[in-house]
Design a protein around this nucleic acid. Structure first.
Lengths: 131, 131
DNA sequence: CGGGATCCTACCGGATACTG
DNA sequence: CAGTATCCGGTAGGATCCCG
């Protein structure tokens, strides 16, 4: 089986438009500001983490954005949310196997990008010089 | 060398904040609406493609968004832009080796997502049912 | 403590009109 | 043909207030 971008194109075209749209949505969300970072925090913890702890570790995120991010991840089965009806309330988030698998797919892309960051810096410098 | 998400975290933290931000920007842009599709079109062509041809093949893209997308890709060294000062003007875009390499990194993520799209559909159905 | 509701600002992307 | 310039609605995301 040939594993190239053209193969991806072919694989995508076999999908019904509806599913293709969903796949695109999933990938797009992974690149949203806080999504990857949040998942990484949950993966690193290796178990349930309270909302406050997540917010502490995902530095700079607002409560609103973190809530939205976690809702999306829960909706897509990438994390689970457990509510303990105590006083004060406790909510724990846990990454799922699907979430871990997703992270593992994103990993090589990140690693490659980080390792080639100098190439991008250089490209941008050249581009700016030409203006 | 262990190739896990935690390794990625470690690799990222070795970077200067400035470079880390650049890497994040690059990855984020790959997930923007038209970026991947545009690169795929250029990769598929295997050579220079005129602006109009790209616009035809990236179905639904506006001229403004395509221009912006191509500018970003050019800036990051992922495509080249060649202007031929004719009347009417001709502009050809070509994917670079760096662009091809980038596509190859994104490929497994896409493939995995497409192959697991049913898991995501199922998760969303369950989530909606619980409301 | 974990959010929901509200307000506000910035930016994104489409539609349209114009130009070298 | 390949843009640039302008307007404009929708959305992302922070700040703040409130509630169970």
């Amino acid at each position: 089986m040939e594993e190239t971008w053209s193969y991806t194109s072919a694989e995508c075209e076999k999908l019904k438009p509806e599913r293709h749209a969903l796949a695109r949505e999933i990938v797009t969300q992974m690149a949203e500001t806080w999504t990857l970072w949040t998942m990484a925090v949950l993966a690193e913890a290796g178990g349930p983490v309270r909302f406050s702890r997540v917010k502490e570790r995902v530095e700079g995120v607002s409560q609103k954005s973190l809530t939205k991010t976690l809702r999306q991840l829960e909706r897509d089965g990438l994390v689970t949310r457990a509510l303990f009806p105590e006083v004060p309330p406790r909510v724990e988030y846990t990454i799922t196997p699907l979430g871990i698998a997703m992270l593992e797919q994103v990993h090589p892309l990140w690693l490659w990008t980080v390792r080639n960051v100098e190439a991008f810096e250089k490209a941008r410098r050249k581009y700016d010089e030409r203006r």
